[in-house]
Design a protein around this nucleic acid. Structure first.
Lengths: 188, 188
DNA sequence: GTCTATAGTCCGATAGAC
DNA sequence: GTCTATCGGACTATAGAC
């Protein structure tokens, strides 16, 4: 693995663990096992390095989520799979966590991969919900776009609760409740 | 207003705006209009000051939420009022946002007001949902505890989406979807 | 391309005058 | 109780040798 990739890997880990502002170039260099000069040779600044890392993470997450949803037999199954897929409850969402950092929100290059990925999730779920409505599996008296946004928010919020309580069970509780709520959307 | 209160007020604002690690004693002193000596006279450290501020914020939020839920005519109305109450979408939840700061999670005095408040919300909502089930307003085939956790997560996640997109409309979209989901819990 | 040395700033906290 | 001066260290970034 090349130096550039080792730097990007270390950055992704540290951004997930500590966030942007609290992650120092020094810590990245230590974790990647490179000197300061190497980091600044490959990336002009901490912000540019973080932006590259977040872009990579966003692409990876969008790809794996699309794959997850594509393999379910029915739309309702796909939505439930989105809720139930195993996640690192205590680590939080590696992109969603960044929204609490003002320096991230102030920099378009840092914010856009986050916004694009969360918007992409909502699009995938809205399409599934509409399909479920079209084939009569789901009720037609709700807005697929709104419910899709709510489902994405549920996963983000589940991470918040699990971290607050420092208990993965909080995440599971949120998911269990979400499953109850989604079951209420089925036609009967 | 006394010096101590001015310091606590400035701290609460800055913690909400910037989080814990990114808020410097210097910034607090500037915002409160006091010197370093005053701050360290009233509070032994940045951590102790932040803990006092978060305890205050938690008490205030628990009190206002209990009041909000107590004034609704029926359990389902109270749950919908929780979802629909106006919130500062782009600023985020002043307690929930802290869960992304590792230094906060590592310090029990900082973490516990957050965990206690979010747990308190869940307890209030679970009691309402159970009451709704008892009086036949809500279906009895769901876990009130789980759904209560999901409702709290929805509001936390709505803040995340709104901040990611830098658009309050994202918050409204999440709430609209949540209302659809809660309507599915009613008996018919 | 990679390294070390260093600059200039800000951090959290303490000392001590008033 | 409040102030200013200051400490020791960490921060992001640059310089320049190899």
């Amino acid at each position: 693995m090349g130096t550039r990739e080792r730097i990007l890997d270390a950055t992704a880990d540290l951004l997930w663990e500590r966030g942007y502002t609290a992650t120092s170039p020094q810590a990245i260099q230590l974790a990647a096992g490179v000197g300061q000069g190497s980091m600044y040779h490959h990336f002009p600044s901490k912000a540019a390095l973080a932006a590259a890392s977040l872009r990579d993470s966003g692409e990876q997450l969008r790809r794996s989520t699309a794959e997850l949803l594509r393999t379910a037999p029915t739309p309702a199954d796909a939505v439930l799979a989105y809720l139930r897929t195993p996640r690192e409850a205590l680590r939080g969402c590696r992109l969603g966590r960044m929204t609490q950092d003002v320096d991230v929100l102030a920099d378009e290059d840092l914010r856009s991969p986050i916004a694009e990925t969360l918007t992409y999730y909502q699009g995938l779920l809205a399409a599934l919900l509409e399909e479920g409505q079209r084939v009569g599996q789901l009720r037609s008296d709700f807005s697929a776009t709104s419910v899709a946004a709510t489902l994405v928010a549920i996963i983000q919020g589940a991470h918040v609760l699990a971290r607050a309580e420092q208990a993965p069970q909080a995440f599971e509780r949120v998911v269990a409740g979400a499953v109850h709520l989604v079951e209420g959307l089925r036609t009967r």
